[in-house]
Amino acid sequence: MNTQQEIDYNRIAKVIRYINANFRQQPSLEELAEQVHLSPYHFQRLFKQWAGTSPKKFLQYISLNHAKNLLKDRQATLFDTSYDTGLSGTARLHDLFVNIEGMTPAEFKNGGVNLQIMYNFHSSPFGNLLVASTSKGICHMAFYTDQDKEFSALVNKFPKAIYYRKTDNHQQNALRVFNHDLSDIEDIKLHLKATNFQLKVWEALLKIPFGELSTYGKLAKQIGNPKASRAVGTAIGSNCVAVLIPCHRVIQSTGAIGGYKWETPRKSAIIGWEQAQLNLEAEANP
């Protein structure tokens, strides 16, 4: 049976699909509420509770125009100067807490022999998550609709590991990425099975600040291989840690949102949610 949080997310995802297809018409509150068979009042309240902002502002955040403006107006130097701005709160700079450690060649090769993996199923504002961790950090964090299927995908990555269904500190820290206050969060560690190129791309993703966007081409240049846009896209698609490694912040050079491993409406939702958090932070710190 679906949880209320999952039902609410599915409602919001349906609305976002509608917005993505009809943003040029700037649909009204009544039109959006009609998509999920709620009164405008109840829809607005649910949406604001979920996203922290009104449907109207959220529509602006995820529109194609907004994406283009982000790419045009926000240059790479913003990451370096954001520390000194009035909006450089912990919520937007949570990526600074994330460190990546690649698995050793032996761990990579032997399918996780003697590797102990803690895992559990969690809820989030964007749907259900399977989060798994080793003693060194998070090794898997993925949205799912089929619990058994997602767990099987995890086991296929590390077929010889030992699995325990348990929530540990690494998982608890990772899930706090969805909280508004990260001021006392411990370092989030990632323990990943990847090639050197994939790790290089994922580290570049971590340099995209909270609420900002980049493109495949920009990332390719950032890692010193400007002709590797397609390979960068493949590496991004191989990311197994949702949200913490923010592959949702990469869009097409045209400004279109593009695809996402865990469904495009969810990508739009996370982009819009991050923008909403920045807006709330700006209002709180004028």
Score class of each variant (00 low, 15 high):
61 Y>Q: 07
8 D>P: 00
113 V>E: 12
21 A>C: 02
53 T>L: 03
51 A>G: 02
47 F>N: 00
105 P>D: 12
101 E>N: 07
210 F>I: 02
147 Q>D: 09
114 N>F: 02
177 V>W: 03
201 V>S: 01
39 S>I: 01
188 I>C: 10
245 I>G: 04
227 K>A: 14
113 V>A: 07
174 A>M: 11
133 S>W: 00
177 V>P: 00
48 K>T: 15
265 P>H: 07
56 K>E: 15
217 G>M: 01
38 L>Q: 09
261 K>C: 09
221 K>H: 11
14 K>Q: 15
89 G>Y: 05
124 S>N: 06
102 G>Y: 00
82 S>R: 12
237 G>T: 06
75 Q>D: 13
120 N>A: 10
72 K>R: 10
139 C>S: 11
238 S>I: 02
147 Q>A: 13
211 G>A: 12
213 L>S: 08
98 V>W: 01
2 N>I: 09
62 I>G: 05
238 S>K: 13
279 N>E: 15
58 F>Q: 01
66 H>V: 01
131 V>W: 00
283 E>H: 13
48 K>F: 06
218 K>D: 15
155 V>W: 02
31 E>N: 11
136 K>D: 11
5 Q>T: 12
262 W>K: 04
209 P>F: 03
79 F>T: 10
162 I>D: 01
35 Q>K: 13
277 Q>P: 00
69 N>E: 14
22 N>A: 01
23 F>I: 09
123 S>E: 15
258 G>V: 01
105 P>M: 03
80 D>S: 14
53 T>C: 15
218 K>L: 12
179 N>Y: 09
276 A>G: 05
5 Q>F: 07
142 A>Y: 05
107 E>R: 02
183 S>F: 01
32 L>A: 08
44 Q>T: 11
95 D>S: 15
199 L>G: 09
255 G>R: 05
61 Y>K: 04
155 V>T: 13
140 H>E: 11
133 S>F: 01
45 R>W: 05
170 H>G: 05
